[in-house]
Nucleic acid binder design. Structure first.
Lengths: 267, 267
DNA sequence: CTGGACTGTACTGTCGACACTAAGCTGCGT
DNA sequence: ACGCAGCTTAGTGTCGACAGTACAGTCCAG
């Protein structure tokens, strides 16, 4: 029993006090923290009961932040105890995360934290790059001046974080920036797909940014992208986004992630 | 009670005998019929219990074929009675369909058959066109000679169906062809996304093909696409696929679908 | 000491029951 | 006649229980 989620047994009320902001109530602040962004990405608000949201957020964050390791069992009984609920909402939460590719569920078998093969990661970035390109084109066409100002402001904040070496702060602001861009793009379908892909890559993007020099390079990429958008050059924005995505993938692969996980992937 | 799903109350064992092939057991035949294709698209096999599969297939097919109308309530109690099960597997099936965009679920409210706005349809086809383009490029690069032969054979069958005016037969073979192409492409992620988009458009594609002359035009498009792939011209294949997708959208819009549903969409 | 069958445990999928809530209906006031 | 408030009903979300199955650990044969 201590096997599955034992590493964090000491945490009794799992999601309170985690992010430094209370989870109860509606956190109406636009400051991107981990929990609010994840809830947004999972499209949980208004769609599910609080109990389900709580579990999905905790498990999802756990996977993204590496607290829950790929392949690890996600015992629904234990999770239900942890959240003082029954297995029904837990199962629902796990199903949500399965659809987002964070959890693997096979009939009659224990749900597990999804394990990405290097191949799969490359696939995701391939698709993601092209779709972000589409977003870039749409944004360059559709963005109002207010939108552009907003993007600029976000970029400024990101630069601050990057200068301060605050990887976590930069990371989630980066996620929020892309979320904002997909909003401006105005294609809900595209946004939904990218959100889903984003979730799968959050784990890796975090690791990627932690690499020396990567933070700086990422900022530079973002600056160029925003500039292209401001100049209404959709094609350039698209290409830059595709390139930036490829660069991120290269950083991940250079980081030795693929070797590390390649040995685990069948375990 | 007769309100929600009453139109088909007479059907007692809903999915047996529907497609002319028994559903029990594993239908190992490669002949694409509605049920097997849907099960494939929903990635249901191996992933869920039979009870869930049964419900998801029936409801999904119902939505695609128009038996269940957009906006219609999907009462989980009634569905559970219909399938002699409890509400748990029904809920799970509906959640699956929700993730595929066929069903809308909001907390504490009755699940409904999803209603597409014309705007949303355009979005889907925009994304779908570009993603199919990516598939086309990948297929042109990756396809083995056997793969090409297989595609040719399928194309031949489709032509037969088209000549015979068999819309339904052509339709599902067309779905299967694109499924096959995404397989050859070798990008599982891309395949998953396109499958999901495919499901959303099945309703419309069917209606689109039913229009006079559309069947013939579609066949011609497919022929050109396969030819480009055989010539290993990925760029051309991509462009043809994008064009064909746009043509399909145009056919749908010309068919007056948008007017019909625009009046319903808030109802 | 190793491989394979067996057994026990623990977890999954399903069910019926229950509290709570949304939606429809009735009857009232205007 | 019309709109609103309260009531009724029907459906959702959750729970604990139960049957069935996968997994791990044990025992035995070789």
């Amino acid at each position: 029993m201590g096997q599955g989620l034992g590493q964090i047994d000491d945490v009794r009320q799992p999601d309170a006090e985690q992010s430094g902001q209370p989870v109860s109530g509606q956190p109406a602040e636009p400051v991107p923290n981990r929990a609010t962004e994840l809830v947004r990405l999972l499209k949980l608000t208004e769609r599910r009961e609080p109990a389900v949201i709580e579990v999905a957020t905790w498990v999802g964050l756990g996977i993204i932040e590496g607290r829950l390791r790929p392949g690890e069992d996600l015992n629904s009984v234990e999770l239900s105890h942890r959240f003082n609920s029954s297995r029904t909402p837990v199962r629902e939460a796990l199903m949500l995360l399965e659809q987002e590719g964070l959890v693997e569920i096979r009939a009659r078998r224990r749900p597990r934290v999804a394990a990405f093969t290097p191949q799969r990661v490359r696939e995701i970035y391939y698709v993601r790059g092209h779709l972000l390109g589409l977003v870039g084109q749409l944004v360059a066409e559709h963005a109002s001046d207010d939108d552009l100002a907003d993007l600029r402001e976000r970029l400024g904040e990101m630069q601050e974080r990057a200068d301060a070496g605050d990887i976590d702060g930069y990371f989630w602001r980066h996620v929020a920036l892309q979320e904002r861009m997909t909003d401006i793009g105005g294609n809900e379908t595209l946004k939904g797909i990218l959100d889903s892909l984003a979730l799968r890559t959050l784990i890796l993007r975090h690791a990627s940014l932690a690499q020396p020099g990567r933070l700086r390079a990422s900022v530079a990429d973002q600056v160029r992208i925003i500039e292209a958008i401001e100049q209404r050059d959709g094609e350039l924005a698209a290409m830059l986004l595709l390139r930036a995505t490829h660069a991120a993938l290269a950083a991940i692969e250079a980081g030795g992630w693929s070797e590390r996980s390649a040995s685990d992937e069948n375990g």
